[in-house]
């Protein structure tokens, strides 16, 4: 463990939603072996907004993919809401993602032929579940999409589309929401709208959000900022300003 610990404890504790222990991910073999993750242990408590940063190839995306059950580690263990991911088959992993995990993607990934409302409800429809109307109304209110619900994605701005995506992730009240560069495809103004929404999700709705980002201003709203380099966590900090974040990144590159 070379990571300095400033805010959160890396060891498992009751109330941790996501717990990773000694994760390794190795691509290739022999000389061409690449260690994308090299013994990462980290826990995320409920109600925290965490940002994961690091230069390209640092392993931050790989970490998120493994934590979210989209990819499998070469070694180590991941617990999501108490469930060990290792050993789950594709079917069980899919159902776990469906029931416990929400996603916000860089490219929004909305279905173009469905309306905003239908896109929000999509994961629950797939699960065959009925959305809680009160909660849905709250989300619609929070996202400010009230008048745009019957519009198709092509008729929405990028910021609106991403807010739809955030609402989609929140609707099933998952244990954790993963964001993969959620502002990566937005300008600074619309980025702000989306980040506000994520912040409110944590503060007002008691959700847990883990996002990978390049954007220092995005990471600046997080309760905790993790820095990765060469597959290892090199700094695990609490709230940082954008300036502090940029300084840290410079030291990493």
């Amino acid at each position: 463990m070379s990571a300095e610990t400033e805010a959160a404890t890396p060891t498992s504790a009751v109330g941790d939603v996501v717990v990773a222990t000694d994760l390794t991910k190795i691509y290739g073999e022999g000389d061409s072996e690449v260690r994308a993750l090299d013994g990462v242990s980290v826990s995320f408590p409920k109600g925290q907004l965490a940002a994961v940063m690091g230069p390209s190839g640092s392993g931050k995306s790989t970490l998120m993919h493994i934590l979210a059950g989209l990819d499998r580690p070469t070694g180590g263990s991941v617990l999501v809401d108490g469930t060990e991911l290792a050993g789950l088959n594709d079917q069980k992993l899919t159902l776990l993602r469906r029931d416990k995990i929400g996603f916000v993607f860089q490219f929004f990934n909305l279905l173009p032929m469905l309306t905003a409302k239908e896109n929000i409800e999509l994961p629950m429809k797939i699960a065959g579940a009925k959305p809680d109307p009160e909660w849905e109304a709250t989300l619609v209110e929070a996202t400010g999409l009230g008048t745009r619900l019957t519009h198709k994605p092509a008729e929405l701005s990028g910021g609106q589309q991403q807010r739809v995506a955030v609402a989609r992730a929140l609707l099933s009240k998952p244990a954790v929401i993963f964001g993969d560069e959620p502002t990566g495809n937005l300008d600074s103004k619309t980025s702000g709208e989306v980040l506000d929404l994520l912040r409110r999700a944590v503060d007002e709705f008691d959700q847990t959000v883990i996002m990978v980002t390049h954007d220092a201003s995005a990471a600046a709203i997080a309760d905790r900022v993790l820095f990765l380099r060469d597959g290892k966590i090199v700094r695990d900090a609490g709230r940082l300003s954008a300036g502090e974040i940029l300084d840290t990144i410079k030291t990493l590159e």
């Binding site: 979210a68 989209l70 079917q91 899919t94 159902l95 993602r97 469906r98 029931d99 995990i101 929400g102 996603f103 993607f105 990934n109 279905l111 999509l122 994961p123 797939i126 699960a127 989609r168």
Partner: peptide, 8 residues
């Protein structure tokens, strides 16, 4: 996306 959000 559909698979990520839990489509089996």
């Amino acid at each position: 996306m559909l698979r990520a959000v839990g489509t089996t």
